[in-house]
Every structure is written in C-alpha cells, then in structure tokens.
Design a binder for these strands. Structure first.
Length: 125
DNA sequence: ATTCTTACA
DNA sequence: TGTAAGGA
C-alpha cells in the first residue's frame, strides 16, 4: 500500500519546500509571479497537487537557463518533463529563438561600448 | 508545530 | 531572500 506518492494528496507549502529544496518564501514569490498555482484549504493554507513538484523543478531549470519570470510564465504551460529531458512546444521554441536573437544583439552592443571604453584606458593598467 | 500576511534589514 | 511580528 503506497502512502505518499498518489495524485489525490494535497501538499502543504512546507512539504513542497522540502521536496523541491525551495524555501516557502520563494514558493510564495513564484506564486505572486504567476509561475505556480495553489489552492486554499479551509484553514487558508496553500495546498498543491503532486504536479507542483515537477513544476517547481521546471521553474528552477528555466531560471537557471537565465529566463525571466515573465518569459517562464508563458513557457511553463508548454513544458513537458523535468530537469534532464525538459521539452518545450514548437511554437514556444520560436519565442525562445527571439530571446536568443535579442541576447545576441545585447552582446554585440556591449562589445561595441566595451571596445569604445577600452580605447580610453591604457592596456594592463 | 505549521502556515499566513505584511514589512523591514 | 531571510526573518520578525502577530494571529489562527
């Protein structure tokens, strides 16, 4: 008889925190940012479904990839799987390509300004 | 003991 | 983000 791995069990913030390694404080923050949803028990406590564990792991992975919470909010609903093999919807991969393009522009821009600035300072010192 | 909200270091 | 306060 399995006790703690079924789908029907509501999880409190403390347990979700333990199971994801993310502090309750941050979990509430993610909620404010619209990254994760939570129901409320009669006591007012947040309750999460088992899927929340996966969602949080996806958020962490996406955050580690440097995506903003705003982008993650749109990407999340089209994410499948976890950490090692996280896959995204094709239509969203397109959005990500634009992100990449924007990053390339930013990098190029910074390289130019860096070069200009470097022109005013002597090499090595 | 746990969680909740609000607010400050 | 962490942590304290004040309540349930």
């Amino acid at each position: 008889m399995k006790v703690n791995s079924g789908e029907g069990n509501a999880v409190l913030i403390g347990e979700l925190a333990r199971r994801t390694g993310v502090s309750p404080r941050l979990l509430r923050y993610y909620e404010d940012q619209g990254l994760i949803g939570a129901r409320r028990g009669a006591n007012g406590y947040r309750t999460y479904d088992e899927g929340a564990v996966t969602t949080v792991r996806q958020i962490r992975a996406l955050l580690a990839a440097g995506l903003s919470t705003e982008v993650i909010r749109t990407v999340l609903p089209c994410a499948e799987g976890e950490e090692p093999q996280l896959e995204l919807c094709p239509e969203l991969v397109a959005t990500l390509h634009r992100e990449l393009a924007a990053m390339d522009e930013a990098i190029a821009s910074m390289r130019r300004t860096r070069a200009a600035l470097a022109g005013y300072v002597p090499p090595g010192g």
